[in-house]
Design a protein around this nucleic acid. Structure first.
Lengths: 334, 334
DNA sequence: ATCCCGAATGACAGCGCTACCATCAACGGT
DNA sequence: ACCGTTGATGGTAGCGCTGTCATTCGGGAT
C-alpha cells in the first residue's frame, strides 16, 4: 500500500480563489477587516471557514518581520515558585495575540545558551528571562538581540547592569529583612538554606548583612540542590549539624521551608519554639502547612504581567528597572 | 535626534560571503557538517561565530517544511499537577532540537480554541494536549491538523475516540480503586471533591461506581472551581455540610486534598480518625503534610516523556493508546 | 588512457505570505 | 465639466532559507 498522501493544507490563495478575490485582498480581509468592503470581507471569511484555513504564521512573519512571538526562558517550570509569573506573563501576551516559546535552562549555563539560541532563531519580538543569564555567552546573545530590536526583560532580580528592562525585587533586601525579623524575635543562631542560583546567593548575602547589622553571629549557609525539592531540605535536617543547633532558618523558597518543617518534626525540634522557619514565595501551601509558614511574599503574577506589558511596548526606552517589592508575612512558623 | 537605526541582523549570505562560499554551502556546513569539506566547514563556522549569526528558523522552516516546533496545550501551568508532565515533555523535545510553543486554555473552551488556532498557525510538527479538547471546534482543528500530517497526542486521559495517540491512565479506574480502598477501611459516607473538568468527572464517576460495587451509599459530588486552589477546598469544609458528615473524601488533586486537611483541622475533625482524605498526583507535598497524605500516584514525568517520544516518531501508526497506570499510595491520612 | 563514481560545491526556484505602490471608480466642491 | 480625494482592490517583488537538480574535479578500476 502506498503511503497515504496527506491532503494539502489550504493556503491563502485557495481562500482567495474560493472568495473570488486576489490573495492580497483576502489577506487584508482577515487581518485588517475594515480596509475591505463588508461584502468582500464576508465572502472571504466564509471561504476561510469553509476550507478550514489556518494562516501560516511563519510565512506571514517572514514577510512582515513581525513574528508575534515572545520567548520565555525559565530555570524550570517544575518548581511552582515561578508558575505565577509564567501565568501572568502568558495571560497578557496571549491576550495580545502573541505566541509563547518556552525554554528551560535547568539552572545549567550550557543548556541555557542552547535554549536561548533556539529561541532567538525564531526571531521573537521579545525575550523574558527569569533571572539574569547564567553565562556570558547567553548574555552576549541577549545583548545582540536587543541591539537588533528585540525587547528584553529580566525578572525576579534587578541586576546591576541589566541587558534590557528588569522587573523584580531586591533579593539582598529580602535577606536583610528576614535577618532583622529574626533578630527582633530574639533569635541568634541563623541559617540560610537555599539553592546555588544567583538569586538565592543574593538573599544569602543580604541575610548575612542583616545579621551583622543586628550584632548577630554570621549565619551558616546551607547549599541545597536546584531545582528546589522538599525532600532535600528534609534530608538536610538529618544530616547537617548546623540545622540541629539553629534557632532560625531562612529558606530560599517555600518548597525548602516546607521540607524543613517535616525534617524538624522528625527531629522533635518544635517550630517555632525551638527553631523559626521563614520561606519565600508565599505559595498557597504556606497557609496550609502545620504550623502555617511565615514567608516573604513575592507577587509573581504582577512580575509576569509587568514584564509582558514591557514587551508589548518594545522594552521601554530607556528600559526601566522596576522594583515590585516584597512583604514579610509572619505566620506561626516564626 | 533621528531614531537609531538598528544594525542589520546577519544573514546566511553574510556568513557565506565572509567565508568565501556560496550561501548553500554555508547552509550545509551548519546543518550537515559531514557533507562539506573540513576546511570549508571550519571557515563557515568561524565566520558564523564572528558575525554572531543566528539562523532564521522561520525562513528555514518555510523552505524545508520542517518547523522543529511542537505545540503544547495545557489547562494551566499554575497548577503544579501538570508541571512534571510539561517538564518531561520539554526535556525530551528540547534535547531533540524542538522548540516548545505553549498555550493555556484556562479550562475555557473558547480560549482553548483561540490558543490552538494560534499554535497551529505556527505549523508545529506535533501537538501535545493535556486532556482531550474541550470543544468540538478544538477537536475539529486537531483532527484536521492530524490529517495534514501533524502528530497529535492527548495525555492524562485516554478518550474513547482519541484524535491521535493517547498517553495517560484510566481516570474511571482511579475512582473505583479509591472507593474500594475506602470501603475496605470501613468508610461509608464518601465524598468526591474536585474540579469540573472531564478528568475529574471521570474520577468521580468511577468513584461512584466503586462505591456501588462495595454496597455503599452513593458518594456526594462536591464541585470546586478550576484551576485547583487549596483555599477553595478549605473554604468548602466550612460551608458545605456534606464535608461535615463525610468519613472519607477523595480529592481530585493533592492541591485540594491539602486544603481539606487544613479545613478539617479548623473544624476539629481528626484526619484520619474522623475522616479519611486521599488525593491525586502524589506531589512532593503529599509526603510533607501533617498527617502525610495518601494519594494516587501518577507518573507525570513518564507521561510527558512518552508523549514526546510519540511526537518524535510522528505520532505512531496506528496511533497507540498507552495506559501508564497509577498506584494508590496509602499514608497516614487514610 | 579511458571511464565512471563519489565528494564537494553551486545555480535556481520557490516555500506562503505581506509591504509597497499602482490602479480605478465614485464622489463632491468649485 | 474638471480635478483632487477617498475607498477598494490588485500586481509585483521579496522576506531568508533550503530542496532539487546540475556541475566540477580528482582518483581508482579496467
Amino acid at each position: 500500500m502506498p503511503p497515504p498522501i496527506p491532503p494539502p493544507v489550504p493556503r491563502l490563495s485557495d481562500v482567495a480563489r474560493a472568495a473570488g478575490t486576489s490573495p492580497i485582498t483576502a489577506s487584508r480581509a482577515l487581518r485588517a477587516p475594515d480596509q475591505v468592503a463588508p461584502a468582500t470581507r464576508a465572502r472571504v471569511e466564509a471561504a476561510a471557514r469553509a476550507l478550514g484555513y489556518v494562516p501560516n504564521l511563519l510565512a506571514g512573519a517572514l514577510a512582515s518581520a513581525r513574528t508575534h512571538t515572545v520567548g520565555v526562558l525559565v530555570p524550570t517550570i517544575a518548581s511552582s515558585i515561578f508558575a505565577a509569573t509564567i501565568n501572568g506573563l502568558t495571560s497578557v501576551l496571549e491576550e495580545a495575540g502573541f505566541a509563547i516559546l518556552l525554554a528551560q535552562s535547568g539552572y545549567d549555563p550550557a543548556r541555557e545558551a542552547r535554549g536561548l539560541a533556539a529561541l532567538l532563531g525564531h526571531r521573537p519580538e521579545g525575550v523574558v528571562c527569569i533571572g539574569a543569564p547564567l553565562s556570558p555567552a547567553s548574555a552576549a546573545m541577549l545583548a545582540a538581540a536587543r541591539r537588533a530590536g528585540t525587547a528584553v526583560v529580566e525578572t525576579w532580580e534587578i541586576p546591576d547592569a541589566p541587558i534590557g528592562a528588569a522587573v523584580g525585587f531586591d533579593n539582598h533586601a529580602v535577606g536583610r529583612a528576614v535577618a532583622a525579623h529574626f533578630a527582633a524575635a530574639g533569635r541568634r543562631r541563623l541559617v540560610f538554606a537555599g539553592g546555588t542560583d544567583p538569586r538565592a546567593a543574593a538573599r544569602s548575602a543580604g541575610f548575612a548583612a542583616g545579621a551583622r547589622d543586628a550584632g548577630l553571629p554570621a549565619p551558616a549557609r546551607l547549599r541545597l540542590p536546584v531545582p528546589a525539592a522538599m525532600d532535600n531540605a528534609t534530608e538536610a535536617c538529618r544530616t547537617d549539624p548546623r540545622l540541629a543547633t539553629a534557632d532560625a532558618v531562612f529558606a530560599a523558597t517555600d518548597i525548602h521551608a516546607m521540607g524543613l518543617l517535616t525534617g524538624f518534626r522528625a527531629l522533635g525540634r518544635a517550630v517555632p519554639d525551638a527553631v523559626a522557619v521563614v520561606g519565600l514565595g508565599d505559595l498557597d501551601l504556606a497557609r496550609h502547612t502545620q504550623p502555617a509558614l511565615s514567608s516573604v511574599r513575592i507577587d509573581g503574577d504582577a512580575i509576569g504581567r509587568r514584564a509582558a506589558a514591557l514587551i508589548l511596548e518594545g522594552g521601554g526606552d530607556p528600559p526601566p528597572r522596576i522594583d515590585l517589592g516584597f512583604t514579610l508575612i509572619a505566620r506561626a512558623s516564626g
